[in-house]
Design a protein around this nucleic acid. Structure first.
Length: 605
RNA sequence: GGGGGCGUGGUCUAAUGGUCAUGACAGCGGUCUGUCGAACCGCCAAUGGGAGUUCGAUUCUCCUCGUCCCCGCCA
């Protein structure tokens, strides 16, 4: 080994020992007759000192050392002079009186500062030089936490009898809806693999194969637009189990997260997690991933205003819409401009406007006051449980627009009013998710999650009824719209952390599902017939879940807005490029030819 | 595919239709015998790219590129 100790571990108990350390020079404080250098390795920092009076040779050898030179030094651990201790350093009671120094490598001046007074560099520059960014303590701490999260995931699942099994990255289309990355193949011109969106089918095949309990910390790929919480490639804790029902999967997942919170965050959490039905979550929060760290719940006003003279409301109701509101505390005095600002905000989500009712100390103010009697407005405040000083924000539209705009408005107001406690971890389950959702463009149903979910056994009759129903497919009362799936989402602080289901292992039910979503058997056979075939050989009942590793990391690390670039070692930009390598880059013409392909000429050519 | 924000030395940032484009840090040179956000003196170094308006553009307009956020997409 090139070293005997790590920089950050040196303490008074090491005094008198001669140690050899390797690391990088932090600040070099060069005085005329002494040089102090902060030597840093992964474990931390220790100060080394060279003195021209004691050893002119070593002192001279450090003359040219600059920031981020890579050094190997040997010296004696000594107690610092009285009064010269540095309480900011864990090793601050001691320093290394240097006896020999080897410059293992020099360093060019850095493109940005790693520490000190310097303001943080832009994310773009940090990503371009990610290998330097990693030398900063916060980034190093995140890498360490990420490793621990993976280690504890493996430790827990191992203790539960799970096997980690690898699945292919070169794969075939899976039934989920995301666009896939295509991998052309030289040996099969015109054909190609795709990178998996998830190991979904593989893990089900592992169940057919009798593995019984499988997990994998798996890379997944989706060729879709990035977001703060979405990257083209990301990591899932993929889990699948045989001979289980929904409660078994939820229970295992809860204990996994309790373990991770305890071992990685040092926090205890309460089990079991609260469960909300999909319907209740949509009703109270307008979202299937509600942030329950604060109130501001959505309140139904439809019945109160259906007889009002306000056409915007009554027309919306007549067209099958609804009227709902949230009550923002203490902002009754919002100016016209502030209200306009909120109106613009909800318009992004399809709302056509925002009605407001402000409950002042003695008066009521509303931008639609002329359409309402005072009694009607009092009734609204009462329904909203409004207190003097509160502002009621109302949206009337079709249910999906009301839900989305009030969901975003609710979270926006919570941010503005500082209502979100940062130290809370509100885990919850969303259950009883609809099996099918109506797609107006398609004019038929789609699988909410994927077509291999098992409908709730209690709703099997509805599956049948749907085939003979007189209702139109778009009718919210259609039996197929009522079918609940054994499908569950784990939500933490407004982020979908995990999603899973009990799978359909019976061929007859599977065929019904294909019929309902309008997927011809031949097409199903072509796309994933190999899996349907597998299910005909005694496939066991099974189900699973897939927590998003990156989102868990972002929330555990307390990254604002859940920006997962902060917790991915080498992330891509939101435009899907890698600033470090410059990928994706042009593919030379001969490579295309070899693959039997040719890029289309770009537009300007 | 759409909407919005940002783009000034290596980094972060200030300002302006007109004289030498501000400051800090980094870098380079020097001073300093206990520094640790070292200090002090000096030096070097910039308006993303293109077109337009103009006597003159870093500033105004348009396009483009990059980046960030959001809608769609991901479900």
């Amino acid at each position: 080994m090139q070293r005997t100790h790590h920089c950050g571990e040196l303490r008074p108990e090491h005094i008198g020992q001669t140690v050899t350390l390797c690391g990088w020079a932090g600040t070099v404080r060069d005085q005329s007759h002494q040089t102090f250098i902060d030597l840093r390795d992964r474990s931390g920092i220790v100060q080394i000192v060279a003195d021209s009076d004691l050893d002119a040779g070593v002192f001279e050898s450090l003359r040219g050392v600059k920031s981020e030179f890579c050094l190997q030094i040997t010296g004696e651990v000594v107690r610092r002079l009285p009064g010269k201790e540095n309480p900011k350093l864990a090793s601050g009671e001691v320093e290394i009186r240097i006896e020999n120094a080897i410059v293992l490598n020099t360093s060019k001046p850095l493109p940005f500062e790693l520490s000190g007074t310097g303001v943080a560099a832009s994310e773009e520059v940090r990503l371009q030089y990610r290998y330097l960014d990693m030398r900063r303590t916060p980034v190093r701490d995140i890498l360490e936490m990420r490793y621990k999260l993976a280690r504890e995931t493996r430790r827990f699942l191992d203790s539960e009898g799970f096997w980690e099994v690898e699945t292919p990255l070169l794969w075939k289309s899976t039934p989920e809806g995301a666009r896939e990355y295509v991998v052309p193949v030289r040996t099969h011109p015109g054909k190609g693999f795709v990178l998996p969106q998830s190991p979904q089918i593989c893990k089900q095949l592992l169940m057919v194969g009798g593995v019984e309990k499988y997990f994998q910390i798996a890379k997944c790929f989706r060729d879709e637009s990035s977001r703060a919480d979405r990257q083209p490639e990301f990591t899932q804790i993929d889990i699948e189990m045989s001979f289980v029902g929904q409660d078994d999967v939820l229970d295992l997942t809860e204990r996994l997260f309790a373990h991770l919170m305890r071992e990685v965050k040092g926090q205890e959490i309460e089990l079991p997690f609260p469960r909300l039905t999909y319907a209740e979550s949509m009703r109270r929060y307008g979202s299937d991933k509600p942030d329950t760290r604060f109130g501001l719940e959505l309140v139904e006003l439809t019945d109160l205003v259906v007889d009002s003279g306000f056409k915007v409301f009554t027309n919306a109701i007549a067209n099958g819409g609804e009227v709902k509101a949230i009550c923002a505390p203490g902002v009754a005095a919002y100016s016209r401009k502030e209200v306009d600002d909120l109106t613009e905000f909800v318009k992004r989500f399809g709302a056509r406007g925002l009605a407001t009712f402000a409950l002042g100390e003695s008066e009521i103010k509303s931008n639609v006051a002329k359409f309402f009697t005072e009694n009607q407005m009092r009734a609204i405040f009462e329904r909203m449980d409004a207190k003097p000083g509160d502002l009621v924000l109302v949206v009337a539209d079709k249910p999906s627009v009301v839900a989305q705009s009030l969901d975003f408005l609710r979270r926006e107001m919570a941010r503005r009013l500082n209502l979100i406690p940062q130290d809370k971890f509100n885990f919850l389950w969303i259950v009883d998710t609809p099996m099918f959702e109506y797609d107006a463009e398609k004019g038929g149903f789609d699988a909410t999650h994927h077509p291999f979910c098992l409908p709730n056994p209690e709703d099997m009759a509805l599956m049948q009824e749907g085939f003979s129903s007189n209702l139109s497919l778009g009718d919210v009362l259609h039996p197929w719209a009522q079918v609940r799936a054994w499908l569950y989402d784990l939500v933490l602080n407004g982020f979908e952390l995990a999603s899973g289901s009990i799978r359909c292992h019976r061929r007859d039910i599977q065929s019904q599902i294909f019929q309902i979503i309008g997927l011809p058997e031949e097409v199903a056979q072509e796309r994933f017939g190999f899996m349907l075939d597998a299910f005909e050989y005694g496939a066991p009942p099974h189900g699973g879940i897939a927590p998003g590793f990156d989102r868990v990391m972002a929330l555990f690390a307390g990254i604002p807005d859940g920006n997962i670039r902060e917790i991915i070692p080498f992330p891509k930009t939101s435009g899907g490029q890698d600033p470090l390598s410059g990928a994706p880059t042009a593919i030379p013409a001969d490579r295309w030819t070899e693959l039997g392909l040719a890029p289309l000429p770009s537009e300007e050519e």
